[in-house]
Design a protein around this nucleic acid. Structure first.
Lengths: 121, 121, 121, 121
DNA sequence: GTGGTCTAGACCACA
DNA sequence: GTGGTCTAGACCACC
């Protein structure tokens, strides 16, 4: 059972939310290589959304080589997901840099930022 | 003269780009309390967009208490902008913490994170 | 079907009339939490006004957390409307106190004020 | 020196704010019958607004028999202001009734309302 | 000139 | 079908 929280209000389309949630779970090791994930219909039913929406998300994930679908057997996390992980890290690192930039724009000193990070668990 | 670069492609609506640009300028101290900003029509004309779009941006900024509009006089940066800025800093600091958490989950060490921050300009 | 009477003459803009009517219906329990309200286009058509005007009203209501809009699904009364209502009651209670103060300044006795209130339907 | 707080943002035009402030001062006895009030130019200068705006306010007040202008001597509060006072009381009484109605719509009981009024100083 | 309101109508992504 | 964005242009009161 995959837990996906959908935000129906925000600017992100549902299918993108599914994509990024699954990518995050893979990156975090919650979903492991070769592990089977729910069928399109099953996930759609669980989330109470249209199967077409899940289909679109799975198509994108397959395109990104995050998952692989075998028409008879089902859908699985790809064997090779190292590249996925690496990309993910880079993306998040960029986000971090942007956030730091923004904070400095807001008048927070770099010293203060680093202090807060060091305090975290 | 306020310089606002618009991206017509991305997912961010134009009015939000105006909002965040002005917020950034306020945060940076480029726009100061009680300073007058361009009239709706003027900014719209400068940016080559419709006055209604600028109006929507100004409405949001007014709602956030970043600016104040006086009919027949014009639009000004709020007198008491400090509290707004302080709240903003807190919010962004929380986001930063979350981002750091995520990166650590992804296997990036805290040492590495701080190094990257120190490298930034 | 929501019944909204519009006054096109007065100083109150149409969108504010929509806002306060819906707020009143929520306060009275006629519109209940999670209940769907008419789509922007539908209400606009019913009232014989432009959809943009309804949109503006809905934007304000959403900002006040009275309603929530889900793209492609529709617009609904917020789940947690109680807190909003409670705040509203407090605000109006303060206004009442001020009004009573003013009347007493004008030479109306408290006894008289209470009498008038008791007479009301 | 008359103290008038102007709200440049609200829906009420400046001249109406002047009118109602002076009426309130008369009703409260702060401005007394036959008392002289500032000239148009003087008040305009004090408030930092256009003399035309003050003129418009004085015209309305004169029309309502609240003030009287003698072209050579200046402008004075009218001798007979009882009717003004009485009208004012009626207006405020109506406002009170509306406020009570609104509170009852919001689910506050009449008993509660009266209790709060009695508690006030 | 300013901000505020409103209309008419277009296009978009999404489900 | 839904909400969201944007344009073009009108009219208003106020100053």
């Amino acid at each position: 059972m995959i837990l996906i929280n959908l935000d129906y209000q925000g600017r992100l389309p549902i299918y993108e939310q599914i994509v990024s949630t699954i990518e995050r779970y893979v990156a975090l090791g919650i979903l492991k290589p070769e592990e089977q994930i729910p069928s399109i219909r099953e996930l759609a039913s669980n989330l109470g959304i249209n199967p077409n929406t899940v289909k679109k998300a799975y198509d994108i994930l397959e395109n990104k080589k995050v998952i692989t679908s075998y028409s008879t057997k089902g859908t699985f996390i790809s064997k090779q997901i190292d590249k996925v992980l690496e990309n993910r890290r880079k993306e998040e690192m960029e986000k971090l840099k942007e956030e730091v930039q923004l904070l400095m724009h807001l008048g927070v000193e770099k010293k203060e930022i680093i202090k807060v990070i060091n305090e975290g668990d």
